[in-house]
């Protein structure tokens, strides 16, 4: 269990300072691109570019590694199962009805890269954007404050819940809890952990309600803002830059 309890990694890099609205826009375009890029090679290049962008903006390896650990199971699942469901092209190995094909492997690779790209794009936004800025971005885009707050609190508490899961598992392991055997058995063994985590999460939610109310959520008719976000010339340039780059790639693909 890592020690990460929040996605945000403090820093002063270009990506950190970029207006969160531009980052959101960049993320949307990036997600679109991940879907539209046709070849596995292009997907790989795009993923590499994202990795370089994050590393170049001071996101430490351990944060990227942590993100990988969260999605690796899904990635491996796709990588190893998907080829059998989408056979095409030359057959590499045949196991009875199952055929491992070149096209299938290629397809699975592309899909895995897509998942990776999408996760790391989202990570890029969350690792470099403070909760306050994210909420402000949503509010400026017309989302009501409470919705923006709810979203950012969810993001803030997801890692807390994952840390709770770690604590609970440790506590149960010390009482002889083990999750082994077949899938059904394991699912049953997991019950004590899931119950404790669910209770803990509900408790966390209750406490949060009280904390927000005690600090005056919704008391003023109009909430004020300390240090609002504002688009600087550099943000406008970045906005134009990513949009043009996106259109250029689209043009090349036609």
């Amino acid at each position: 269990m890592g020690l990460i309890l929040d996605f945000y990694r403090p820093g002063r890099s270009w990506l950190h300072r970029l207006d969160p609205r531009v980052k959101l826009w960049g993320m949307v375009l990036g997600l679109l691109l991940a879907f539209l890029l046709p070849s596995t090679g292009a997907q790989a290049l795009f993923f590499l570019a994202i990795l370089l962008l994050l590393r170049g903006n001071g996101i430490p390896w351990n944060a990227l590694h942590w993100l990988w650990r969260q999605i690796r199971f899904l990635c491996l699942l796709i990588l190893f199962l998907q080829p059998f469901f989408t056979p095409s092209g030359e057959t590499l190995v045949a196991l009875g009805l199952l055929r491992l094909t070149l096209g299938g492997v290629n397809h699975a690779l592309g899909l895995t890269l897509r998942v990776l790209t999408m996760s790391f794009l989202t990570g890029g936004l969350l690792f470099t954007t403070e909760q306050r800025q994210l909420v402000r971005a949503f509010v400026h885009l017309g989302v009501p404050y409470t919705w923006g707050l709810t979203l950012s609190l969810t993001l803030r508490f997801l890692p807390a819940i994952s840390s709770l899961l770690g604590t609970v598992r440790e506590a149960q392991a010390a009482r002889g809890w083990v999750a082994e055997g077949n899938l059904f058995r394991r699912a049953r063994e997991y019950l004590p952990v899931l119950v404790a985590v669910t209770i803990g999460t509900l408790r966390m939610g209750d406490q949060l309600t009280l904390a927000l109310a005690a600090r005056g959520l919704g008391t003023a008719s109009k909430r004020t803002t300390w240090r609002d976000i504002a688009m600087r010339p550099a943000d406008w340039r970045a906005l134009v830059g990513v949009s043009v780059a996106f259109l250029a790639v689209m043009g090349l693909l036609r």
Partner: peptide, 22 residues
């Protein structure tokens, strides 16, 4: 009872909620 992502935001949050002048 702490729910923001930095110590200074934590202190500012309540002031914003009661509508203090920025």
């Amino acid at each position: 009872q702490l729910f923001t992502s930095s110590a200074e935001d934590e202190v500012a949050w309540g002031l914003e909620a009661v509508g203090a002048a920025p």
